[in-house]
Amino acid sequence: MKVVTFGEIMLRLAPHGYYRFTQAHDYEATFGGGEANVAVSLANYGDEARFVTKLPTHEIGDSAVNDLRANGVDTDFITRGGERVGIYFLEKGASQRASNVIYDRAHSSIATAKPEDFDWDAIFTDADWFHFTGITPALGDNVAAICEEACKVAKAKGVRISCDLNYRKKLWSTKEASETMTKLAKYIDVLIANEEDSEKVFGIKSHATDVTAGSLNREGYIDVAKQLKEKFNFEYVAITLRESITANDNRWGAMVYVDQKPYFSKQYDIHIVDRVGGGDSFAGGLIYALMHGYEPQEAVDFAVAASCLKHSIEGDYNRVSVAEVTALAAGDGTGRVQR
Rank of each mutant, 00 (worst) to 15 (best):
M1G: 11
K2Y: 01
F6N: 04
M10I: 02
L11C: 12
L11I: 08
A14I: 07
P15F: 06
Q23L: 06
Q23E: 13
Q23V: 06
A24H: 09
D26L: 12
A29Y: 00
E35F: 02
N37D: 05
A39H: 00
V40D: 00
L42I: 00
A43W: 00
A43L: 00
N44V: 00
L55F: 02
S63G: 03
S63V: 02
D67C: 09
N71W: 01
T75A: 02
F77K: 04
R80H: 14
G82L: 02
G82I: 04
E83N: 11
R84T: 10
R84L: 14
Y88L: 00
F89D: 01
A94E: 14
S95Y: 13
R97L: 15
A98R: 13
A98G: 07
A98L: 12
S99P: 13
N100L: 12
I102T: 07
I102W: 03
Y103G: 10
S108K: 02
I110A: 04
A111H: 04
P115S: 11
F118S: 05
F118Q: 03
D119S: 04
D119Y: 04
W120T: 03
A122W: 01
I123P: 11
F124S: 01
F124Q: 05
T125Y: 03
T133W: 10
I135C: 14
G140T: 07
D141N: 07
N142G: 07
N142A: 11
A144F: 13
I146Y: 08
E148Q: 11
K155Q: 12
I161F: 04
S162I: 03
C163Y: 01
N166V: 05
Y167N: 08
T174L: 13
S178D: 13
L184E: 01
L184D: 01
Y187P: 02
N194G: 09
S198W: 11
S198F: 13
V201T: 03
F202Y: 15
G203I: 10
K205I: 15
K205D: 14
H207Y: 14
H207Q: 15
H207N: 13
A208Q: 10
A208I: 09
D210N: 13
A213S: 15
S215Q: 13
L216A: 09
R218G: 10
G220C: 08
G220Y: 11
A225L: 07
L228N: 05
L228P: 04
K231D: 12
F232L: 14
F232N: 06
N233F: 03
F234V: 15
A238D: 08
R242A: 10
E243D: 12
T246R: 12
T246G: 15
N248T: 14
D249S: 06
R251L: 15
W252C: 12
G253H: 01
Y257W: 10
D259K: 04
Q260P: 01
Q260W: 09
K261E: 15
Y263A: 09
Y268N: 15
D269Q: 11
I272Y: 05
D274Q: 01
F282G: 01
G285Q: 07
I287F: 06
Y288S: 01
L290C: 10
H292F: 12
G293M: 09
Y294A: 12
E295N: 09
E298Y: 02
V300P: 06
S307G: 11
L309Y: 02
H311E: 09
I313P: 05
N318P: 10
N318K: 04
R319G: 02
V322M: 08
E324P: 05
V325T: 07
A327R: 08
G331H: 09
G333H: 06
T334G: 15
G335F: 13
